[in-house]
Structure formats: structure tokens, C-alpha cells
Design a protein around this nucleic acid. Structure first.
Lengths: 135, 135
DNA sequence: TTCCTTGCAAATCGTTTGCATAATG
DNA sequence: CATTATGCAAACGATTTGCAAGGAA
């Protein structure tokens, strides 16, 4: 519930996320939004990101270790995590939603979804280039 | 490398994990092993679990939020996480390793594996029974 | 005026680490 | 004796939360 009110910082956070194709962590969002809004606090960034994710306006990617990442693209798609440079990129591939049925086959309960991500070495790292993630 | 030496606590941790079909957190392991070995420390439990996982003798399950869980069954299989009681159970289903090829199709880099887990409401919770996880 | 949102700092949770000591090979 | 493992406590990284003040409806 809770009657959402307008908030400049929430809008800036959403706008920033939409402008990026990588998948920033809360801290990256903080560092960047702070350029426009110097007094914003990290706590607010976390609060707003969580709120936006709950509203379904962004997606929160919980990739194993390290910090969560956020994605303004909420359409169903998969991610790849590079084990070397830690970058997270979108994966162009057909949906594998069918695995839900496979899983549901003889399961006593209700399966509502699945979390899947792939890992390995990204093209950049494989080419031995320097691909440390940007700001 | 590092030449592994015998350790009573490591053996107890492994033995405890093998005796369970649920997937205990480090803290659950600590609480239980402590019954036999009262002076064991949580730090040691974490160290040993990490070591065993690195050796491939157990699997570390990084399921989104909350604490990691550990599984003595290292054979490839999938897990289900109940969103209500937080229990983690094995899923009897055929392998979906084929999705690796699907993902690799037109990806510029090397995909080495994937992490997948399913979530929803377990049979116990669906039946409105009290299924809070045991010790 | 109501109550959602913020900034700030302190608190929390899960996990790791430094260090001196104990146990193994 | 060389080295790995342990207990303990302090340190850590990521995230959440309490609170008083600020801003939107």
C-alpha cells in the first residue's frame, strides 16, 4: 500500500538506471547520481532502489557474491557474469521458461519462477584486453 | 596447493553435512557440530566449509538473499527455495544443461556454467501447515 | 496537516581475517 | 621442525533501520 509521493531522488535514480546498459550496483548509482544531487545519501539510494524493485519498475539482480546489481530493463532476459572483470551483461537468447514445466513435473508445491545466470569469461577478458568496469 | 592436514573439526563438519538432506547454513552447521565439539568456533566452520567447497567435496549454494547454504551432494541437481518458510529442497528433474548451448549460441566469450534455482511455495506451506525449518 | 521521503549515523547480518597457540605430518 | 588448522575477536562489505527534519499532496 502506502501512497507513493513524488521524489526527485527516486526519479533521478530511475533515470540514471535507464541510461545504462551495464548493471550498476547501489554504490555505482550513488556515485553517479551524486554528481547531480551532491547531498543524496547512500541510504536513500538503497531505499529507492528497493522501492522501485518492489514496484516492478526495475529488477534487482542477486548474483551470488558481491553487491546486488540493478537493471531498468524488466523484460525477461538472462545475464552473464564475467568471473574475471565481474561485468554483468545481457545475454541474447531465447527464453528457457520451459524449464519451469520441467521442474514442476513431479514437484509437490508451487513453482513460481526461477533465477538463472551464466558465468564464464567475457569476450573482452578472453582477448586479454583491459576491461575493468567503468565508473 | 597447500598440503591438507587432517582436522577433526573438518571431518565433523563434512560428516554432519552428509547426514542431512536439507541444506544447512554455516550457522546451522556451527550450532550442530558444537554439540559434539563445544569449543569449535564459527570462524573455523566458515573456513572449513569454504575449504571443502573449494576441494569440491561439498557445494555452496548462493541463493539470493540470506545466508549461503551447503550441500554434501555434489552431483548435478537443482534446488527449490520456498519463499515462505525459506526451506531449500532438492528438485527431481532432468538436467537442463542444454541451456548452456542455447546461451552460448551467439555470445562473444566463454560460458563455463550457470546457476539456477527455482522458487515458489513448497508443498508443506501450500498445505498451510507449520513448516518452519528445524534446528 | 498528514504522512511519505530524506540525510545521517548507528546497527545488523553474513562472512572473512589477523594473530598467537595447538595439532598434524 | 615445518606447516596447516584452530579459537577468538576484531574487521569487513553490503544493506537496513531509527530518528528528527524536509517536502509533497
Amino acid at each position: 500500500m502506502a501512497a507513493l509521493k513524488y521524489s526527485r531522488q527516486r526519479e533521478m535514480i530511475k533515470a540514471f538506471l535507464m541510461s545504462r546498459k551495464d548493471h550498476p550496483t547501489a554504490d555505482m548509482v550513488y556515485m553517479n547520481v551524486r554528481k547531480q544531487q551532491p547531498n543524496i545519501s547512500l541510504g536513500t539510494v538503497y531505499r529507492d532502489l528497493t522501492q522501485l524493485a518492489d514496484l516492478g519498475e526495475i529488477r534487482r539482480l542477486r548474483i551470488g557474491n558481491g553487491a546486488d546489481r540493478f537493471d531498468a530493463d524488466t523484460s525477461p532476459h538472462y545475464h552473464f557474469v564475467c568471473e574475471r572483470c565481474k561485468s554483468v551483461t545481457d545475454l541474447k537468447m531465447e527464453s528457457i521458461e520451459s524449464i519451469l514445466e520441467t521442474a514442476d513435473a513431479n514437484f509437490d508445491g508451487r513453482i513460481e519462477g526461477h533465477v538463472t545466470y551464466f558465468y564464464g569469461i567475457c569476450g573482452c577478458c578472453a582477448a586479454e584486453r583491459d576491461c575493468v568496469s567503468e565508473s
